[in-house]
């Protein structure tokens, strides 16, 4: 499956998501959109915003931490993050992110995700923006 600015990557047991955007926030927004499509079984839009603080010291930790934050929100609140509306500057407490999302649709038939992994993780600059690749354990 693929969507606007993201696509799934094959892995023998699990799933990777590649996302791209003109800057880090935009690439993260597409990454979360791809994750939402995996978790819900189809692309989903949400409009409710929630601020979170991701425990991260660099961009790689931000990617892993953000995916884990989305998995956590879904598991404990049933709230599905569908995008990133805002990204602040990192501080001592972490990296402030404004997530966009909605409750998980009741008829969703997605793939449960355990966590983001560090295997094959990359955050790189390319002409025209930022490209993120991350694999999730399903």
């Amino acid at each position: 499956m693929a969507g606007n600015g993201w696509r799934f990557l094959a892995h023998t047991a699990d799933v990777g998501i590649e996302a791209r955007g003109p800057d880090l926030r935009a690439a993260l927004d597409r990454l979360v959109a791809g994750l939402a499509a995996l978790l819900a079984g189809a692309p989903v839009e949400g409009a409710e915003e929630r601020p979170v603080l991701v425990d991260a010291r660099d961009r790689e930790e931000l990617v892993v931490g953000l995916v884990d934050e989305c998995v956590y929100r879904l598991e404990v609140d049933g709230w599905l993050a569908t995008g990133v509306a805002g990204l602040g500057a990192p501080g001592p407490g972490g990296w402030p992110v404004r997530l966009r999302g909605r409750p998980l649709p009741p008829d969703a038939e997605g793939t449960p995700v355990k966590a983001a992994t560090w295997g094959g993780l990359s955050v790189r600059e390319e002409a025209g923006g930022v490209v993120i690749a991350v694999y999730v354990d399903t």
């Binding site: 799934f8 023998t12 047991a13 793939t111 399903t138």
Partner: peptide, 10 residues
């Protein structure tokens, strides 16, 4: 043990 990815299976 898996031999085919979830993406390929779908």
């Amino acid at each position: 043990g898996r031999v085919r990815s979830r993406t390929a299976a779908r």
